[in-house]
Amino acid sequence: MKRIALFASGSGSNAEKIAEYFTNNDEVKVSLILSNNPKAGVIDRARRLHIPVLLFDRHTFYQTDEITELLQNQQIDLIVLAGFLWLLPPSLVKAFERRIINIHPALLPKFGGKGMYGHFVHEAVVAGGETESGITIHYVNEKYDEGDVIFQAKCVVEPTDTPEDVAKKIQVLEHQHFPKVIADLLLNP
């Protein structure tokens, strides 16, 4: 059984889609959801899906190895960042090298880096007059959005699209592709 740990800071729609995708799978299981935000919507979603949740603070995450040790003790095979906004500590990245992935709501390397998440990305795409956007699933390293690309999917950005329109198109791509890419990484290495 392959075990996934999901990190999320927000509403958790991607985390929920991933967990639902593997609900009746005998080979892959979402074992744990971790969050740095005690008010995150992902917590309620995890409870509905009967997935344990671990909340942690900045000190625990950056000044101790508690999270890394917990994930190792839980025999986690893949860490998935699904709307998690903190940069991972180098010790965690090293302990799970090429076993941590993230999804970014743009076609990297465009519109990546610190502060480029969610609506900030979509606003930049529209302001930049881009004709397409999309998602990038990539490995995580010690820098924001610079790990090797695993998968990209594109959508058209119309001249009349607002950032909210782009966000809706991106969410469709995320929900459609993220669980499948995870399954492929775990089951067809």
Rank of each mutant, 00 (worst) to 15 (best):
T131W: 01
V125N: 15
H104L: 07
P179S: 08
L32R: 10
N14M: 07
G118Y: 06
V121C: 04
P90T: 11
F7I: 06
K110I: 04
A82L: 04
P163W: 08
P105F: 01
N141C: 13
G10W: 10
T64I: 02
K154T: 15
R99L: 11
D161Y: 02
G112K: 04
V42C: 10
F111Q: 07
K2D: 08
V156A: 13
P109F: 07
Y21N: 06
A8K: 11
G83Y: 06
I4S: 02
P89T: 07
T64R: 05
T60N: 10
A183Y: 11
V156G: 01
G113I: 03
G134A: 11
L108H: 07
Q72M: 14
R58F: 08
S9I: 06
D165L: 05
G129V: 12
F178W: 05
E66A: 13
A8H: 08
L187E: 15
F178A: 06
I101N: 10
K17G: 04
K154F: 12
K2Y: 15
E158V: 02
Q72R: 14
D184R: 12
F120C: 05
K17A: 15
D184A: 13
E97H: 14
T131Y: 08
D145F: 03
I135N: 01
R58H: 12
L54W: 12
T68Q: 12
D184I: 07
S9L: 11
E20V: 12
N36F: 08
Y21A: 04
D26A: 09
E164L: 13
V28M: 04
R47N: 10
I150P: 02
T131H: 10
D161L: 03
V140A: 12
E27A: 13
I103A: 09
V28N: 01
P179A: 05
E27M: 13
E66W: 00
S133T: 15
E130N: 00
T160A: 13
G113S: 05
A95D: 05
L186S: 04
V140K: 01
R45M: 06
N73A: 15
L185Y: 05
G12Q: 09
G147M: 14
